[in-house]
């Protein structure tokens, strides 16, 4: 019928008619280039990563032996390597928890109280730090945390120099200066990943119906009670969604602990130095599989908690 109303006039029309009769073909043609790219470049590389992790390195020649072995994964369990994994996971957990606590007031204010112009201020105020240069942000903290930097200056200015020294004298998390301690590493991680926690949290807070808050107030609940019994449970999927980012990004980062922190390695640094100067690509690959495995478990739990609907 449509052919009669609009007779085919050129190749463009004939092709249109052709695809009209076979809509699946067009969808397939559209999908082919991106799928080929992602399939070959990305999935192919991930497969290469897995493959490499089952290879091993010849201890004498230093060359990669392309034969299947679990020896390389076994090396991850050596205390010095296992410590790296534990240290990284502990840091990721601490950063995630702190980001949730620090981010909640911002997300809550932006979702509930910011109107009109302020809404835009909050939106840009969260979005710009999220997108602005990662390295510049890390560099800013190197300036802040340096021994001769602004924190030391401010602490001495208000007469808290001794307090700062006392904090730095703490075992494990302390150090020579903030920029060479775990506290410094923690602060930079928190700063850089905080917006990733705020956004999903804000999105889920915005979906909490006002009527429920009114109902809670009508039933005599105080603000705190409403927060604890109504808002927090409803916002939880957003918090879990945000934690996926903060946890995963901390697990895989190697620039921040390299620039600000003690000389003890995190997973990312182990991967980077093993594939570079050490030339041990199999062990580097095995190390890189660790965050993938941890994130798979994490994502399975998150999915059960409904976090994917909040993304």
């Amino acid at each position: 019928m449509s052919d009669a109303a609009h007779p085919a006039r050129g190749p463009g029309d004939r092709l249109t008619a052709h695809f009209w009769r076979r809509p699946k073909l067009l969808t397939l043609l559209l999908l082919l280039p991106p799928l080929l790219w992602l399939g070959v470049v990305y999935i192919g590389s991930l497969a290469a990563l897995l493959l490499q992790s089952f290879y091993s390195i010849d201890p004498f020649s230093g060359l990669v032996v392309p034969e299947f072995t679990l020896k390389t994964y076994g090396e991850l369990l050596i205390p010095s390597n296992f410590d790296i994994i534990v240290r990284t996971v502990a840091m990721a957990a601490a950063v995630t928890l702190a980001a949730a606590i620090l981010g909640f007031p911002i997300a809550f204010f932006a979702a509930r109280y910011a109107k009109g112009r302020w809404k835009a201020v909050f939106y840009l105020g969260i979005m710009l730090p999220l997108w602005s240069s990662y390295l510049v942000k890390v560099y800013a903290w190197k300036l802040i945390l340096a021994k001769e930097g602004i924190i030391t200056w401010a602490a001495e200015g208000i007469g808290a120099g001794n307090l700062l020294n006392a904090v730095l004298a703490l075992p494990v998390i302390g150090g020579n200066s903030l920029s060479t301690s775990y506290i410094g590493t923690f602060l930079v991680f928190l700063y850089v990943w905080l917006p990733y926690m705020i956004l999903p949290m804000q999105a889920s807070l915005e979906r909490v119906p006002t009527s429920m808050l009114e109902a809670s107030a009508d039933l005599g609940a105080s603000n705190w009670r409403t927060l604890r019994s109504v808002i927090l449970p409803l916002a939880l999927p957003g918090v879990v969604a945000g934690s996926i980012f903060t946890f995963s990004l901390t697990l895989g980062d190697y620039i921040i602990p390299q620039i600000v922190g003690s000389s003890r390695f995190f997973i990312g640094q182990a991967v980077y130095s093993l594939q570079g100067t050490a030339g041990n690509i199999p062990l580097a690959a095995a190390f890189a599989v660790v965050p993938i495995a941890i994130m798979l478990v994490y994502l399975t739990i998150a999915r059960k908690m409904g976090a994917f609907d909040a993304l």
Partner: peptide, 20 residues
């Protein structure tokens, strides 16, 4: 599949490509 390269830490994308 589209989201994965940015959802997984950059070091995994990087190390995967390096392996390949």
């Amino acid at each position: 599949l589209v989201v994965l390269p940015i959802a997984l830490p950059g070091i995994i994308t990087g190390m995967s490509l390096r392996s390949a």
